[in-house]
Write a protein that binds this DNA or RNA. Structure first.
Lengths: 218, 218
DNA sequence: GGACAAATATAGTCTTGACTAACTTTCTTC
DNA sequence: GAAGAAAGTTAGTCAAGACTATATTTGTCC
């Protein structure tokens, strides 16, 4: 009987899909490792190894280390943008007041996406940190600004507001993502903080756009 | 005539102060380098060289690389705490409404400290990023919480509020510090965002503590 | 002014990590 | 079923950076 040298030949996916799957696996693994050891200690070698590959295989898919982070960042931004667009589709037609009333949902969904994506905190930081990556974040900012501008078009809003809200959102998002790491063992309290931020943003939306006379600020 | 081997002997400070001065210079230089090249590219060798020293000299003052960052972080936290305490001393006695009315000052002063400290953005990130450094940030959080608790003692405030505000402040601070890097060339707009945040926080303070009946949130 | 301590330099070690040249295996296609 | 492309491997190179053993200078104190 001839010795079997190779495992029972699990049917590999067709070559056409393999590249795509492998690339995705590399990204997933990169995210997991970011979550586990932080950005300073993640190496391309680790990523490749955890994905069951050797280093040069990784370089087949990504030009260099930054390209991995960039792809990861893009994927996260797309997911966040989807959340925003769904939320706008649901609430923008009903006007600013309706949006303000549901701002908590947006925060919660955003937080859920961030939490579901391993290493998201590090990805966000990396996006703000490296000259090579900042443009990904800026593209997202512009996209969000455009969507908000569309959504506000029908409701009398000063033209600079959408861009300011977008920046506000990015800053708060990053702040809380990092904050989450700081207070990892303390999720209950995190929820309380989020509730506060939601209340703040609600007032910000209502008051800054369209100051209600009854609540004027002087 | 005998050749002069050494520079014109600038009078060095007495040995007693030298260590202290050198340590401070190392910290200053570390901050500058953080600001210039980002945390991934700062090395202990660079820091020592820029301070006019050799690597082992740095290790005389700091046990390892993290110790430098930790000291830098502590220094920044102390400066921020001073700002907060000054602000509280000025406004807390007059009550929550007065505090809310001057919240913009606090933000502006905090932002000024962050901007005056080269590399502050990186320091803040590092404090959130490394298990070795997180405790510095937590200590600051506790300190702020205590101060706020004292300040609020005389004004009916739910006992969990000071801790929540402290976390809010840390998160917003980090978010905007990072944001500032993202929009470096765009300071005007930064000011506008800060104004928005101030307005938000004002409402948060007023509404969350002590909901005015006229503005009730349902 | 000599002994001791503080401050700093010389000259490394050693590890890690990004990246690559060249080869091999596996799949697809005609 | 052979040619060629795609996916992946072996076995490295090279540079940088954290950290150190040891020597040397400089200041202080009696």
């Amino acid at each position: 009987m001839i010795a079997v040298d190779r495992p029972p030949a699990v049917k590999r996916p067709p070559q056409q899909d393999r590249a795509h799957l492998t690339r995705g696996r590399l990204l997933d693994v990169a995210g997991e490792l970011l979550a586990e050891v932080g950005i300073e200690r993640v190496s391309t070698n680790m990523i490749a190894a955890r994905a069951g590959l050797t280093p040069p295989a990784l370089y087949r898919y990504f030009g260099d280390k930054y390209a991995v982070l960039e792809a990861l960042g893009r994927r996260l931004m797309e997911r966040q943008n989807d959340v925003l667009e769904g939320w706008l589709a649901r609430h923008a037609p009903a006007g600013i007041a309706a949006m303000a009333g549901h701002i908590g949902d947006l925060l919660a969904e955003n937080a859920a996406v961030t939490r579901a994506e391993p290493g998201a905190v590090w990805i966000l930081r990396a996006l703000h940190a490296s000259p090579r990556l900042v443009h990904v974040r800026l593209e997202s900012h512009r996209h969000v600004t455009d969507r908000l501008t569309d959504a506000c078009a029908a409701h009398l809003v000063a033209p600079d507001r959408p861009a300011l809200w977008s920046r506000l959102r990015l800053a708060v998002e990053l702040g809380f993502a990092a904050d989450e790491m700081l207070y990892e063992e303390d999720r209950v309290s995190q929820a309380a903080v989020l509730a506060d931020v939601a209340a703040m943003l609600r007032f910000a939306l209502l008051d800054l756009i369209d100051p209600p006379p009854a609540c004027g600020r002087g």
